[in-house]
Design a protein around this nucleic acid. Structure first.
Lengths: 168, 168
DNA sequence: CAGTTTGTTCGGCTCACTCCGAACAAACAA
DNA sequence: TTGTTTGTTCGGAGTGAGCCGAACAAACTG
């Protein structure tokens, strides 16, 4: 078990995180920065992240801001009370990823549902095709809305359990 | 209830579909084309879609191909046996959207999980930090994997029911 | 047959996004 | 004070994706 092996393994996983980041609507740099922080023994400052990732200082600054807002990393002022800030990775990523997911999906579901409901109100009891189709949509989106809302209260393990136990 | 009102309501919903399409990793044009087909009384050909959407013929051709592959719309040869093809919207969108979702998420989860498992195998029982963190990741991704797999077997209503009934 | 319509493919344009580097502000050190 | 370090903001270069129009192939119509 050489040091090299460990480095290679870590690098592979971080590359996976870069890929995953794109799926969640984040940039590759966000994936790498999170990955470096995830494996780091101690909190890292922006200059240290510059060294570790090779990205420009400005990129680190911007990406850490969004990652902090999302909750995937945490920003901590240095112990000495100095200006230097340090970042750590949130290791319990489940809820953070859910938050990201919510920002991208639930927000969309909600606005769509609102639009549908407003359209539905404009076309009342008219049983023409438009109204009927919009009503179908409304049902689906209401289910979706409820699912996402319920999901956000569960941990990954609970969710898994809920689905497995429902298996009729 | 004027014709205008109906048109406006339909247009609003279609705009929502454009937005939604982006969330699912599709283009806005895909959302609009699906929306037009969704509300259309009869199947539409490519020239008709050009008229309805304002997109170029080539765009319609490309987008209909991907939407057909995904399963969100269906391609039908005309009754006369002619060359003209017609498209209809799949109205039971739940499973189609799940497929899209799978292509974007489950595929990513699987490759990530494979990478993690390989890294894990390379760093056996070494209880250093790297190995421990990779193991944490592995657990989360295995849960994720299982959740997505289970989810794909349920309808929206079933899923909703499963989550609601699990509420302890 | 020639002319028209339908559908696909290809090259190019545009726009948005990512990232970089420079400039700047703020806090510290000598 | 002046010089150094840290962090943010802004403008711009590079890149990829979406969309268009032209060219082409295939099938119909006269």
């Amino acid at each position: 078990m050489s040091e090299d092996d460990r480095t290679v393994a870590r690098e592979r996983v971080i590359e996976s995180m870069e890929q995953s980041a794109e799926v969640y609507g984040l940039s590759r740099s966000a994936g790498r920065i999170y990955g470096v922080l995830y494996f780091s023994e101690e909190p890292l400052s922006i200059p240290e992240l510059v060294d570790e990732t090779g990205y420009a200082k400005s990129t680190i600054s911007n990406v850490t801001r969004t990652l902090t807002r999302i909750g995937l990393i945490h920003r901590r002022s240095s112990e000495g009370g100095g200006r230097r800030v340090h970042y750590t990775a949130e290791r319990e990523i489940w809820f953070s990823l859910q938050d990201v997911f919510q920002q991208y999906v639930q927000r969309e579901i909600q606005t769509t549902l609102r639009t549908i409901q407003r359209a539905q109100a404009q076309l009342p009891d008219d049983n023409d095709t438009e109204a009927a189709r919009i009503k179908e949509l409304q049902q689906t989106y209401e289910d979706l809305q409820e699912i996402v809302t319920l999901t956000s209260n569960f941990t990954a393990a609970e969710l898994r359990d809920a689905l497995e136990s429902y298996d009729q």
